Simulated assay, not measured.
Amino acid sequence: MTDSSSNSSAPPPDAHGTRWGDREQRRLDILRAGEDLIVSGGYDALRMRDVAAGAGISLGTVYTYYSTKESLFIAVFAQRLDRMLPDLERAVAAAPTAAAAFIVTADAYRDGYATFGRQFDALSLVTDASAVQSDVAEHLRAATARMVTSLAGTLTRFGYRGDVAKAMTLLWSTMTGLANHYSSERREFLPVEWSAAVGFTAETLAESLGLT
């Protein structure tokens, strides 16, 4: 005879299949609901009440995980970077030239920037302790550092012998500028296709840095 008494009083899973007390899955439900709103309408569409509705929980429960809208935004961004980085690291490692490595990184960066950077600078928030929870800010720092490390390693792999920190400042600023240009109305003033602009930039940077 099967004893089911231990399960008889447990609340059933909600509409997302999340069981009561499963905090990690509940956190993922909140992040999924938040990302859906950001992708569809940008930062302004991220309303905590709508996140609660999308996750199938109360508004108060959302705030027990993320105390501010800014913290939730950063958490969604960091999680998205975590999902992107394994594929990006493999693509960068397989790139035959430094220019090719820059191109795949710029392509990935642009995709995230269009959603998380065009209307709102996520990275500018991580130093504001009053707006963003410390653990969330640290998660974004770690994910960003991993991306920078991947690209910095590529510099040395292709023969760069100069100051890596200075070179990374140039590469990161260039990627941000390209992503900003092509995610806004500025692209109408210099109507060059993204692939052509990034390809030219990659070859120019590789040559100027003496990369093979």
Rank of each mutant, 00 (worst) to 15 (best):
R110E: 07
R157Y: 04
E193C: 08
A202K: 10
S208K: 12
A78H: 06
F102P: 02
R32L: 14
S71M: 01
G60L: 03
M168S: 07
P191W: 10
R32Y: 11
G162T: 10
A108N: 05
R161Q: 15
A114V: 08
A196L: 09
M175C: 05
N180R: 07
P191M: 11
S183N: 11
G60I: 05
L178H: 12
E185Q: 11
G162W: 06
N180L: 10
S8M: 10
L72Q: 10
S173I: 02
D163I: 00
H181Y: 06
F77K: 11
S4W: 05
S208A: 12
S173E: 11
A53L: 15
A100S: 15
Y109D: 07
A167W: 11
H16E: 12
R161W: 03
G54R: 07
S134G: 08
D44A: 15
I30L: 15
S124R: 02
V76I: 11
T115K: 13
A53H: 14
T154N: 15
Q133W: 00
T18R: 14
I38E: 09
A98C: 00
P11F: 01
L209G: 03
G210T: 05
Y113I: 01
A197W: 00
L88M: 09
A45C: 04
D3K: 10
H16L: 14
D107Q: 08
A145P: 02
S4N: 08
M175I: 00
P86D: 07
P12Q: 08
